[in-house]
Design a protein around this nucleic acid. Structure first.
Lengths: 380, 380
DNA sequence: TATCGTTTCTAAATCGTTTTCTGAAAAATA
DNA sequence: TATTTTTCAGAAAACGATTTAGAAACGATA
């Protein structure tokens, strides 16, 4: 590998001068710069990130902490899409990414240890379990952090707009004439609480009385568990006309159960997904779902993180809410109602350019803590 | 951050001694080691990977080069599963992983440049396009390389056993009584050629005359293109009784077309996938497919790469072939035939422990170059 | 000519480790 | 006791870059 010293020898300038030439330093003659740059190019010079990092204490490495309950974070399409977009933007800005974990070399290392060990300039966190002490430790360190789909008030968060999205979905379903809307929601996370809250509020605003038997807990990304919930819903005396699922993948379990019950979609029952993953766009009938904008979520997370890293003085942590889009497929039947045919407008998708101007923070609250406690206790 | 120097000051030993104590150096008193270790622990010392890397020229970082035609490698479940398993094993062995790309900081950087820049100890490559000059440059460098699903004779490759797997699939279908077997294959890659070759040979061995109209080219992971191919196959005068698809995801396009044609699966036509991704296990009827063992592929890739890095003298590059497993679902109908009901045995899945002992190299050859040329020229 | 101000460059220190070489002290041997 | 060997610890030099303080060169000015 050719080093600065090699260039220095070859062209007669000191290594200090060469370094400055390479980095666009101020006090150096333009001609010298050109000469050195030429020589460097001719010799095939490439900087050594490791040496640079040691001196400058900047690695241009971003840590990525994706923790999934099944530890297969990468196989989860929503996460992997966000990650992919994060990666693309990070690379565009000159950063590489490194996965943060606790398993390095078998020794007990906290996430923070790992970040220090690798010298990450910043970390993006997307985790199921934000209450993990190791995650908290990391968040409270002085490493710049951006979280996805979770709010810590010390750091920037990028949030998929679950509140508005569920509102849009419910409104969409309502406009199709549905009044008996069931909601199979995921396990207790801040995201789930937001969706549930929005579900209740929207129904309430639309004049729908939410029956508690229409609310079922399942596990995200687990078709079996939503299949089970579906079966329970289908067995109700007063069966819902439409079921909202925790995510697109889970819906496969629902479809199976519905077909097993001899019902057809959407003739006998309507279904709605969430996420808008690739799968949802190839199922037939096309799934009505909510597309989360993983592209923007990832890109914005990277952009914010780099901003925080490069402008530590002036950077202001913020909550960035990224809108989703209702994808009207073919799985929600248009019902014909007697009266009350008012169509409620649904959220106009915000233009991508606008999202930087939004800095909204929702109160997650614990309105649904009781609900989840009841579920855990099996009393719901 | 507490450094070796800090420890050195605190306990009175020189930094050389501290370093040796920390790394289990030879010429040092056991008591001293213990004392230093205690102090280090007490101070919350963690080594600095950057400094260490600068001195030792070992970063304990593995490069990952996953290039997809759509540049969304991570969203591809097969790749992301392999990667996840690779990551887990790499971390267990004390290595972190870094994505290699060409887009760092907008400057034109080759893959090799990027590896040198980051000082990767080794690189794993899974790419659609192994003929990319940048990929070739990387492979021919002196960085240890492991490739997945492609053979370069200089370096170790981990190969999903496409030849045996297709043989097993075809045999499985044959045993179910099918003789009119169509094969929708992916675009021209070494993997595709292996599968095609195995398809031909197996059919030939089973006494099936492969009709060229039963072979259709599509694009991997693209339901639209396999949907199109399906439509063509269904329109044939002599319709196949069973269709093999390039992958599980593509099959969604096939299902759509089959249903559109008013046919049902498997009553009217049988279908077979490939990959055994999560999706295939939740579709109903359950998909008959071939599960590629991404777990072993990834793990073995990491293990081999680390072996190559840590034992540069003694390491011998090899081809490791990882068997797949036929997953008999419900999408292949049992046909009742007049005579000829001999059941051929299918490959017994090799135990996981055995794979290290296999070091088989297939001759990929270019037997199908002509076939693909014809496809590209639209004359097939 | 002496002084000052620019511009352009360099020497040297530094980042946190590892590693080689050296030598003192302790232990073993004669 | 004298000599050799072994054990243990430290000094110092790297690794490849960046950065600071200051030197040299050169005009311009008084």
């Amino acid at each position: 590998m050719v080093t600065i010293k090699d260039i220095s020898k070859k062209c007669g300038y000191s290594s200090a001068t060469v370094s400055k030439a390479l980095n666009g330093g101020a006090d150096i003659n333009q001609k010298t710069v050109e000469h050195i740059l030429n020589v460097a190019k001719g010799m095939g010079y490439f900087p050594n990130a490791v040496a640079r990092a040691l001196k400058t204490n900047r690695t241009y490495n971003l840590g990525v902490l994706f923790v999934d309950k099944t530890f297969s974070g990468l196989a989860h399409e929503y996460f992997s899409s966000v990650l992919n977009s994060f990666k693309v933007e990070a690379e565009r800005l000159g950063y590489d990414i490194t996965f943060i974990s606790r398993n390095i070399n078998r020794v007990g290392m906290s996430y923070l240890d790992h970040c220090h060990y690798r010298g990450c300039d910043g970390v993006v966190i997307a985790s199921i379990d934000f209450s993990d002490p190791d995650v908290v430790e990391l968040v409270q360190s002085n490493i710049p952090i951006v979280t996805i789909d979770h709010v810590f008030n010390e750091c920037t968060s990028i949030l998929s707009d679950n509140v508005q999205s569920v509102k849009d979905l419910v409104t969409h379903v309502y406009n199709k004439g549905h009044r008996k809307i069931a909601f199979i929601h995921g396990e207790d996370t801040s995201v789930t609480r937001k969706r549930l809250g929005s579900f209740h509020r929207t129904c309430s605003n639309l004049g729908i009385d939410v029956q508690s038997e229409y609310l079922r807990a399942a596990i995200y990304h687990d078709p079996k568990s939503s299949g089970l919930a579906t079966r329970e819903l289908l067995a109700l005396k007063n069966r819902p006309s439409c079921i909202l699922y925790p995510d697109d993948f889970s819906i496969l379990g629902g479809i199976t159960e519905i077909e097993r019950a001899g019902l057809s979609i959407p003739e006998d029952i309507s279904i709605v997904g969430y996420d808008g993953i690739h799968l949802s766009q190839v199922l037939r009938p096309r799934l009505t779902t909510l597309r989360q904008d993983t592209e923007i979520l990832g890109r914005e997370a990277a952009a914010q993180l780099v901003d925080a890293i490069e402008n530590p003085k002036s950077y202001i942590p913020q909550q960035i809410v990224v809108p989703g889009t209702v994808i009207a497929g073919e799985t929600v039947k248009q019902l014909i109602l007697a009266g009350n045919t008012h169509i409620f407008p649904i959220y106009a998708s915000i233009f991508k350019e606008d999202i930087n101007e939004k800095s909204i923070s929702y109160c997650v609250g614990s309105a649904f803590a009781g609900h989840f406690r009841r579920i855990r206790a099996g009393r719901d």
